[in-house]
Design a binder for these strands. Structure first.
Lengths: 223, 223
DNA sequence: CCAAAAGTGTTGTTTATACACCCATGT
DNA sequence: ACATGGGTGTATAAACAACACTTTTGG
């Protein structure tokens, strides 16, 4: 007990993750229900304490995996929150990440750290533990900004996707409709995607051509 | 000695600051010479350990003040660096900030923590301690990006400035010349600045009109 | 009168916006 | 045949880029 001693006081360091996806044409994010105090029973971002031999991003990925079963997602460092008093137990610095996952690739497997993990529509979030509401707002702000000048939108989609699906991503996050012809002209003019040759038959209507990201895995700055 | 004990290991948390200014038509940044090991005698970013009751930004400002005598500058959180091994003593998480200061307002008063503080041209930096070179590069990248879509450039200038001075800021950071007429059309069309009515007589040539930022203190997103 | 930086418009090109109909498919 | 989402072009407006000479001052 209390065996880790230092000559000067040290804060605790955690990572927390805001993981977005798009389901049912809504922007949703992943929360876990806390099984321990403080804020026991309340919804919170997945996250936890940094291991001393572990990189920050690795910690974020590990906690996400442990608490929700989700791996293989795109994560990017968001901001570091550290106001004194944000955790009632001790001084905690939280290095936060945000991430995007295609809704297909995600299966929830809640584990020991959390009693429950679930997706919530961004517009219908419950009250969150700690200052997590502030973190969520910052993540949303960053996501919306980055949509406009990077290829981050592709991270919401599987390897192959239709132009309508891509447009849906933009419309959902911007929460306003876009003109179909202008959108297609714009995205095709960027030289970011190419036809796969395949098509998707999706119901009683004309099949849609499938596209792929020319530089998958990498989020690039455009404009 | 070793009186601060925890049940789990805690990393140390520091803040480091990349402070830019423009002098002699060059982008310069502020370094201190380390007076203690590790990296004793090498140049490094101003910064130091977080006090447990102190906000992160306050820590950055305090260390900057203590080590260089500079206060009252615009600081913005940059990124958090925490790779294991980046400090040979113990695990250290560094929450970094970058800042901009008008060259007029800065007087260096090196203090006890550092033997020396000095400005270096960005293109002629000495070898830096820790991973500070990486931090500097990230700060420069962010500064250059932010110049294009925010009003951050004003932070390099005093309250009143001429359009040529403002253009010099843009040209210095982008390191390429801009067309004078297009620049003036562009910046005046943003509705960000206004004439003060005064003018600056600066040598044997026509005096320049002085302008001021309409919303001083606030860095806004434009475009 | 000379040197030096301040100031000022027009034109062509590129990029963004507004807008409506036909196409291929499954039932 | 019809309902459904997929696919396509043109015209106008706005933003950007290229470009050179006159003005005011101090010495």
């Amino acid at each position: 007990m209390n065996e880790f001693c230092y000559r000067y006081p040290h804060p605790a360091v955690t990572t927390d993750v805001v993981l977005f996806t798009i389901r049912e044409d809504k922007l949703q994010l992943l929360l876990i229900r806390r099984r321990n105090p403080p804020f026991q029973g309340q919804w919170a971002l997945p996250g936890g304490f940094l291991d001393l031999d572990e990189d920050l991003a690795a910690c974020a990925l590990r906690e996400l995996k442990e608490e929700t079963g989700i791996g293989n997602v795109y994560l990017e460092q968001l901001y570091t929150f550290g106001k004194p008093g944000r955790d009632p137990r001790e001084r905690v610095i939280s290095v936060t990440y945000y991430g995007l996952a295609p809704s297909e690739s995600i299966t929830l497997k809640p584990d020991t750290d959390a009693t429950e993990a679930a997706w919530f529509a961004f517009g219908e979030l419950p009250e969150l533990a700690f200052d997590h509401r502030q973190i969520v707002d910052k993540a949303h702000e960053r996501l919306a900004a980055k949509l406009e000048y990077s290829t981050i939108a592709f991270q919401f989609l599987p390897k192959q996707f239709t132009l309508s699906e891509l447009q849906d991503v933009y419309e959902t996050i911007r929460s306003e409709p876009m003109d179909k012809r202008n959108f297609r002209k714009w995205i095709l003019g960027r030289n970011l995607i190419e036809e796969t040759g395949g098509e998707r038959r999706n119901g009683s209507h004309r099949p849609a051509k499938l596209f792929r990201n020319k530089h998958p895995g990498r989020v690039e700055i455009i404009r």
